[in-house]
Simulated assay, not measured.
Amino acid sequence: MESNDLRIFRAVALEGSITKAAQMLGYVQSNVTARIKQLEAELKTQLFYRKHGMILTPTGEKLLPYAVQILHLLDEAHKALNDSDKPTGRLAIGANHTVSSLQLPQILSEYHKAYPDVDLSLTTSSTDELIYKILHFQLDGAFVKSSSFIDDNIVEELVYEENLVLISSPETDDIRTACSKPFLMNTIGCPNRVNLEQWLNAEGINNIRYMEFNNLDFIIEGVMADLGVSFVPQSAIQRYETKGLLKSFSIPPQYSTSKTFFIRHQDTLMTSALAKFIETIESKTPYHQIAH
């Protein structure tokens, strides 16, 4: 088995599609198809079912974790041999949808100016998807909105605690009136939404209506347009509230405290590029280092 064949196999397995894998790798589809067939012939076994996409066979399921680990070790060896005090190379960062709109552009801009030789990329997605990418070494680190990670391979490097507030248009008189409107929130599974639902349940507020947005800026704009209300970080709306564009309501602290973590895989090499990125986060935001 050649490492490039394993890289193609991993891409097809994770994407579930020859087309998507070819796009991700920058190959033509026929080349990807041929290399998969070649790998199957070499191993004398079928690795994929080819109906409704590319689905791993039981043998393919067995091979995938080995392929991920082998490719990770090869990539880490390359990083280690080419690492220096001057940050260079690839640095792939992920961020939850709500985090990506909050302070992150400033962090990325500051880092890019300081270390222009680093090939910095950003992926925004749900917390579950980001954790999956961390576990499969597709990201070097990620900002996620979660307070617990059941996988021991996940290392929490930094944590940022903030206060959430209920926001509405300025015309809303009280919190009960606000809660009668549709809630502009992220999709199911968002920790902020979980906190909100726990509070609403405690208050006996039922028949909650949702309009789902996975972008904090769109949520805030929707609230200012009186499309509904939302539950967001106070730091994200202070300038709008000062200008009288929206109103905020406080709720009990057991429901309004939110934590954002910067995480990585425990086996990810701490290159100078990643170390300097963590330093940049600490220097530019209220994130705090977690003792390990």
Rank of each mutant, 00 (worst) to 15 (best):
L246R: 07
P116F: 12
A80N: 06
T268K: 06
Y27F: 14
D226R: 13
G189C: 05
R209P: 01
V12L: 03
S147G: 14
L139V: 02
L216V: 06
R239T: 07
I131H: 01
H78P: 00
S109D: 08
N201E: 11
L200S: 10
K62F: 05
H72S: 09
I237L: 05
Y160R: 15
A34S: 11
V28C: 02
R50H: 07
L102T: 00
V118R: 02
R35W: 01
Q69H: 08
S180N: 15
H288N: 03
L64D: 02
T57I: 14
T57W: 11
S169Y: 10
E15D: 03
N201K: 11
G60E: 08
S3G: 05
A291N: 07
N163P: 00
P233L: 11
D117Q: 14
Y49E: 10
G26W: 03
P191D: 05
P116C: 13
L166F: 15
A142M: 13
V99M: 09
I131Q: 06
V12D: 00
E171C: 14
T45P: 00
G228V: 07
A77S: 12
L269T: 07
Y287E: 00
A11F: 02
L73H: 08
H72P: 01
E156R: 13
T98N: 07
V118A: 09
Q254R: 09
H52Q: 10
F137R: 05
T124V: 14
V155G: 00
N195K: 14
N31E: 04
E197M: 13
P191F: 02
S146M: 14
P116Y: 09
D75G: 10
R10W: 01
T19I: 09
S30H: 05
G89A: 02
N201W: 09
G222F: 05
E171G: 15
T45M: 13
I278S: 06
P252G: 03
S169V: 08
I150Q: 13
D267C: 05
T45W: 02
Y287S: 03
A273C: 09
T98Y: 06
T19W: 02
T88S: 08
D217C: 04
M224T: 14
V12P: 00
K37I: 04
S258K: 02
S230L: 07
C179T: 15
Y160M: 15
S256K: 01
M54Q: 09
L130D: 04
E241K: 12
